[in-house]
Computed example of a mutant assay.
Amino acid sequence: MKFIHIKRNTVAEKRFTEKMGMLYTNVTYVKKAFLGIPLKTLHIYRKTYYGKVKSCEDCRIAH
Rank of each mutant, 00 (worst) to 15 (best):
Met1Ile: 07
Met1Thr: 03
Lys2Ala: 13
Lys2Val: 07
His5Ala: 07
His5Pro: 01
His5Tyr: 09
Ile6Pro: 03
Lys7Glu: 13
Lys7Ala: 10
Asn9Ser: 12
Asn9Leu: 09
Thr10Phe: 02
Val11Cys: 05
Lys14Thr: 12
Lys14Trp: 05
Phe16Thr: 10
Phe16Ser: 08
Glu18Phe: 12
Glu18Lys: 15
Lys19Ile: 07
Met20Trp: 15
Met20Ser: 15
Met20Lys: 15
Gly21Met: 07
Leu23His: 11
Leu23Trp: 07
Tyr24Thr: 15
Tyr24Val: 13
Asn26Arg: 11
Asn26Met: 14
Thr28Ala: 04
Thr28Asp: 04
Tyr29Leu: 00
Lys31Ile: 02
Lys31Arg: 11
Leu35Asn: 04
Gly36Ala: 01
Gly36His: 00
Ile37Ala: 03
Ile37Trp: 03
Thr41Cys: 02
Thr41Asn: 04
Thr41Gly: 00
Thr41Glu: 05
Leu42Gly: 00
His43Ile: 05
His43Val: 12
His43Pro: 01
Ile44Arg: 05
Ile44Trp: 00
Lys47Phe: 04
Thr48Pro: 04
Thr48Gly: 13
Tyr49Gln: 14
Tyr49Glu: 15
Gly51Arg: 01
Lys52Pro: 00
Lys52Val: 04
Val53Pro: 03
Lys54Arg: 13
Ser55Asp: 11
Ser55Cys: 08
Ser55Phe: 06
Cys56Phe: 00
Cys56Asp: 04
Cys59Tyr: 11
Cys59Ile: 12
Ile61Asn: 13
Ala62His: 11
Ala62Ser: 15
